[in-house]
Design a protein around this nucleic acid. Structure first.
Lengths: 113, 113
DNA sequence: CTTCGTTATGCAAATTTGACATAACGAAAA
DNA sequence: TTTTCGTTATGTCAAATTTGCATAACGAAG
C-alpha cells in the first residue's frame, strides 16, 4: 500500500497568529550569529537576503523586540549580530524542540512499523 | 516582551514528499464517513467541493490506494463512503496524534511559563 | 573621492492556492 | 418516456501569496 510513508512535524511559536520562530528562522538567526552578516547567513541557509530581511522584521514587529543589531556601510559594508533577547529566545526554543521530534518518531514507528 | 506567545504544531504523513494525511484531510474523511457525501462533508469543514476532490485524488494517487468509494447520479444525486483502508489509516493517524500535542504543550509551559 | 560589501526597500514576476462554471450521471417521480 | 434533483467530476481562470530582481543608501578604508 505504501511506498515511503513518513511522518513530518513542525513546532513553532506565534504571536497574534503570526509565526515568530520556527526551524527556518532559527537556522537563519544562528547563521547570523556565526557570520555576523545577514547576507552571508541568508546565502548559507539558501534563501535570498530579501526574504531573510522580511523574516527578521516580521519577527521583531510581532515580538516587539529587537533581535538583530545591524551596522550599515563601513569596512566590509556593514554587518549584523544577535541581541541578548534573540539568543535567549533561541535557547528556549531549542529546549522546546529537544525530545519532541524524538517522541514523535518513536510513536510513529511504534504505530506504523 | 511578549503579548500572547503560543506554541503551534503540526504532525502529518507524507509519501514521496507529498502530504497524504494531516488534520484537514482527517476532518474531511471523517465528515465523509458521517454524511456519506463529499459535497456535504466539504461544506461542513468549510472548503469547496473542488478542493475536497483534489485532496482525495492526491491522497489516493500518492498512497496508491482507493480511499473514497463514490456513486454518481441516482437518488440523492449520488454519494461517497470510506474504504476499509481509509478507516484503517485514520485510526492509525489518530493513534499517532494521541499524546503528541499534549507532550508539546506540557513542554512549552514548562519552558516558557 | 573611489571602491566595496553590506543593509534597506519598492516592485514585478512566478508560483501556488482557491473559486467559478459546466458537464455527466442515474434513480425516482411525474 | 421525460423531467427533476443533488451529487460526482474536471477544466479554466482569478486571486492571493510567495519569491526574486533591481536599486538606493551607507560609511570606513585605501
Amino acid at each position: 500500500m505504501r511506498e515511503t510513508l513518513e511522518v513530518k512535524s513542525k513546532v513553532w511559536l506565534e504571536v497574534d497568529g503570526e509565526a515568530v520562530l520556527g526551524l527556518g528562522r532559527k537556522m537563519l538567526l544562528e547563521a547570523i550569529h556565526r557570520h555576523g552578516s545577514i547576507s552571508r547567513a541568508a546565502r548559507e541557509v539558501g534563501i535570498s537576503f530579501r526574504k531573510a530581511w522580511g523574516y527578521i522584521h516580521s519577527m521583531e514587529e510581532f515580538l516587539n523586540t529587537k533581535l538583530v543589531e545591524t551596522r550599515v556601510g563601513g569596512k566590509g559594508g556593514g554587518g549584523a549580530s544577535l541581541t541578548a533577547e534573540a539568543r535567549d529566545l533561541l535557547a528556549h526554543y531549542d529546549k522546546l524542540l529537544k525530545g519532541v521530534n524524538e517522541a514523535i518518531d518513536e510513536r510513529f514507528h511504534e504505530i506504523f512499523g
